[in-house]
Write a protein that binds this DNA or RNA. Sequence first.
DNA 1: TCGGAGTCAAGTGTTCAACAAGCCCCATAT
DNA 2: ATATGGGGCTTGTTGAACACTTGACTCCGA
Lengths: 224, 224
Amino acid sequence: MELAEIHRVSVADQVASILRQRILDGELIPGTALQEVPMAASLGVSRNTVREATRILSLEGLLKRSAHRGVTVAQLSLEDVGEIYRLRHLLEIPAVRAARMEDSDVLAEMRNALEGYEEAVEGLDWVRAVRFDLYFHTLLIRFHRNRRLESFYQKLLGELRMGMVLVDLRHDNPGGLVPVHRRIFELLTGGKTEECASLLAQLLRDSETRLTAVMDQRIARAAK
Amino acid sequence: MELAEIHRVSVADQVASILRQRILDGELIPGTALQEVPMAASLGVSRNTVREATRILSLEGLLKRSAHRGVTVAQLSLEDVGEIYRLRHLLEIPAVRAARMEDSDVLAEMRNALEGYEEAVEGLDWVRAVRFDLYFHTLLIRFHRNRRLESFYQKLLGELRMGMVLVDLRHDNPGGLVPVHRRIFELLTGGKTEECASLLAQLLRDSETRLTAVMDQRIARAAK
DNA sequence: TCGGAGTCAAGTGTTCAACAAGCCCCATAT
DNA sequence: ATATGGGGCTTGTTGAACACTTGACTCCGA
């Protein structure tokens, strides 16, 4: 028997992962200020290590650093959301067009994502649902077979997910999107790429509209 | 009189910039090992600061870190080059299609880049020529009006530029590409976007072929 | 001669403590 | 109420120390 894995990940990377997860799961709300000393103490690592971790996350766009003012959890503006959605169109639509028969591995993974999505929605686990939703889209990008693009895309969806945790999911839940995703998956396996592309485009438009509306509302409430 | 600028840039960022420039200008060739202590000493900063800088550059893809083995200047493989060129197609072609009349600011900047390119070629300053060449393409991306995309693209071209410094520019100089770039610019200002797109596609194909050939040759020579 | 085990120096990973520098808040004066 | 000027708190950076890996080197036996 062999050791499961060698934990050769640096502490700084581990700290970054922990913070990343807390941010993406909505545990740390955008705008929250993070102080180095308390964090280092609570995580049991040194200040320097925390600094390295925040450096990583700020380059990923999840944290925002201002000199001598500390780091805060990044906050998406409406412009940011628009920018990200334009990129999603630019990248996802050509992705489904690039889908081929040889991509059965990706399709299999998509089926898993879809099932996880459905289960999460049934279990009312919205955080998990969002995660599977976005994972599904990451898999679309995989049709490009391009690691750089995929990691860029994950960064984008990470930023977006951070914005989505603001949505009050009890009233505006994402469960309604399950059938659309299933349909997209079916069109993809059926080779109907054009039809799939247009359905996907519509999904993206709707999704942007919905998120923008929520954010608008929240901004208005905050300005009150 | 006012102070030129407020140096509100952290030391780590400055170190990162210095290293970035050295790498992109070919001063540090791919594969070179960088040791923390000597670097810190020669730059007059602490080891921690150097570490932050290398962390930044490794996230940009310019340096490669392996645990306990130090950092080296990243080396592009043929797969990497192929990956990057597929992204260039994916992003640059839609960019010229997205070009509008309102983008006169970008066009003006492109004219500057073109002139800088021509001057550099005339002056036989190949490093500068490559820089202006790639800057021209960055400006194409600007038609998307998307900051995230632009910074991603600059990262990509940075990696590519690192591969291009290997090319022996005395025998395989990029001066021949000036007319093509000029033509692309003219087609763009003339609003002939489709013609421009196909010319650009061809430029990208040729450019990839050329770089791949040089790298192949170099790999073969290294294996000898 | 070859190969493997043990040894060791060099370099990275991480921590800790200290100080410098900038920002924010608040008390004070006009 | 608006400036002004501390003063405390937090970040930025340094330097030194120690733990842990790695890779090379040596030594020994087959």
